[in-house]
Amino acid sequence: MSAFPILSRFQQDAHIKTVEIEPGQTMDEVAAACAFHSIGLHVADKPGRTLRVRPTTEDDSAPPWPRDLTVEKAGIRFYDCIDIYFEEPQ
């Protein structure tokens, strides 16, 4: 299976963007791919904060996927919408 588009709902961005990801990518790699199209373009960076990925839900309450989980194992499909957000400092 090759690259396919997902909907990147990046925290504080005005737009939901299509970003192509690959089944073997980890969540950290997905977060980086989405950050490339938002941070420094429409969203200010928050240095030192970790980006996490979770499925988009109505109340933004879904837990994040493990950072090393792959796209394939997370079951992310064509046009799935995912949240990419800055993790609160521990």
Partner: peptide, 17 residues
Amino acid sequence: IPISHRPGPEWGARAYQ
């Protein structure tokens, strides 16, 4: 039209599928 909404702390953008 591009799916968009209020940016910043309120973060309103959402895709209704």
